[in-house]
């Protein structure tokens, strides 16, 4: 998952401002486009999708897959970019209700404050599916289901892979966390620690925040390499691929071979990490699948057919990729992001 979007951090609010200034024109344009393709397919479904924004490659890929998936299934998609603002999302949901869509997809920018507008959707009998993040509400009936990844599981998958990879060897691990304070960061850390706790030969020796960025990831890794005795770091775990790409550069500049001298495992599955794996610089990444909207469409279609409510939480698979498939995966993804 794209972490930056998960944080209710100051970073986002500022980018939100920036996007808002630039995005007014875009929003108007999108609005008119949405209105323009109103009654396209008479018998197909019409679905409204309130997206957070387009602040990163992952988010852009999620949007792209949402459009492609809709087309493949004959669904008319009404798309709204919220420019990182909850009030825009609330407006979008209300407008979807007013237009009488068949279902609403919502990637919530924050976790609270949705009860009222989701109540309105429920009153209008329009099912809502949450994408990529959960919300806080005492009334889970307000939405049909939430399609998100299991962020603890992501950490576990990374940890289990590492345990298997080093076998019984002693291994000193360093961790590059995301931005301090996000629940996502706590979860990815927790899952990883759970997985390596079962192997007494794995030791997490250092952890530092790389703030989800390449530059900080590189700086933090440089610090680790300096602070630890030469050759004593056996593996690095990063909460996202971007920080790992920075860390890989730091390892190279220290005269070591990433992927060989120091094992790497990170999360997200962005194209650049596949490229690094194909080049032999990285060992593994746990994919945060961007195809959440197509999954939601399938759940929706099934629900409309047999009216059996889906489970409240549909977890996307946390699939781990290794260098063997990296070249192919890179080719598949590079145009999506």
């Amino acid at each position: 998952m794209d972490m930056k979007t998960l944080l209710g951090s100051r970073k986002i609010s500022r980018q939100g401002l920036a996007r808002r200034m630039l995005g007014i024109g875009t929003a108007v344009l999108l609005g008119s486009l949405a209105a323009g393709c109103d009654s396209g397919d008479k018998k197909g479904l019409t679905v409204g999708f309130s997206q957070i924004g387009s602040e990163s490659g992952w988010r852009a890929a999620e949007t792209k897959l949402a459009r492609q998936g809709a087309e493949q299934r004959g669904i008319t998609l009404k798309f709204s970019d919220a420019q990182q603002r909850q009030e825009n999302q609330i407006k979008a949901v209300r407008s979807f209700i007013a237009q009488g869509v068949d279902a609403i997809l919502l990637a919530p920018v924050v976790s609270s404050g949705w009860d009222e507008v989701l109540g309105e959707a429920k009153a209008a009998n329009i099912p809502v599916i949450l994408l990529d993040r959960q919300i806080d509400t005492p009334n889970v009936d307000l939405y049909l289901t939430a399609v998100t990844s299991d962020t603890i599981e992501e950490g576990r998958v990374a940890g289990r892979w590492l345990a298997g990879k080093v076998q019984g060897r002693d291994c000193r691990i360093v961790e590059i966390q995301g931005t301090v304070g996000a629940s996502l960061v706590a979860n990815r850390k927790k899952g990883f620690e759970e997985a390596i706790a079962t192997a007494p030969n794995l030791h997490l020796v250092r952890t530092q925040s790389g703030e989800f960025t390449r530059a900080k990831g590189k700086e933090v890794m440089e610090g680790f390499l300096k602070a630890e005795a030469p050759g004593s770091i056996c593996a690095v775990y990063a909460h996202n691929d971007d920080m790992m790409i920075g860390a890989i550069q730091a390892i190279k500049e220290a005269g070591l071979k990433p992927g060989t001298d120091i094992l790497t495992v990170s999360i997200d599955g962005v194209p650049d990490i596949f490229k690094a794996m194909a080049d032999g610089d990285a060992n593994a990444t746990v994919e945060l699948a961007p195809d959440m909207a197509p999954r939601a469409y399938d759940i929706l279609l099934a629900y409309r057919k047999d009216h059996a409510p889906p489970p409240k939480w549909v977890q996307t698979p946390s699939k781990l990729y290794e260098p063997d498939t990296a070249a192919a995966e890179y080719a598949r993804r590079k145009d999506l992001y």
Binding site: R14, A18, L22, S56, D272
Partner: peptide, 18 residues
Amino acid sequence: MVAGRGIAQLITEGRILT
């Protein structure tokens, strides 16, 4: 400061331009 990130994002199309 507010508008500039957007300008930079327009140039990179929201990705990290490697």
